[in-house]
Amino acid sequence: MSNALNEIFANHPNATVDKLIPILQAAQRAEGYLSMETIHAIAAHLRIPSGKVFGVATFYNQFRFEPAGRCRVTACRGTACHVRGGRNVINSIESHLGVRDGETTPDLKYTFETIACLGACALAPVIVVDSKYYGKVTPKKALTIIENQ
């Protein structure tokens, strides 16, 4: 078990299932994703079946189960972005990076995801790269932003 995980458990001594989500979030912050070992360790710490941890974790979009790339690219597929050509942006990123929605490049540089709506419709189409928002992007502009990371 990693030191980070031990520290998280130390911060939640005698924790019960109520603390499952905060612990999952902390573990993902510390390790970047939730490995199966981490899931088993959390289950053992909370004295609950590992299936329960897995079930809760997979229910939420915020948790990931594979290592993420160093750079995280998110494209919006909300209605406003869609009508302003968001689909083309997505297609272009996917073919450029060679990954589909939710996947990570083999060199662990980029993780690409789409999201239902970012709520920044005025800027459509929108992408987010490492928590920074970029509005009114075109397929070409998107690739330049990504390559400049």
Binding site: P49, G51, K52, F54, G55, T58, F59
Partner: peptide, 8 residues
């Protein structure tokens, strides 16, 4: 406590 729902 083996079976569980995964995903949504």
């Amino acid at each position: 406590q083996v079976l569980t729902f995964a995903h949504r």
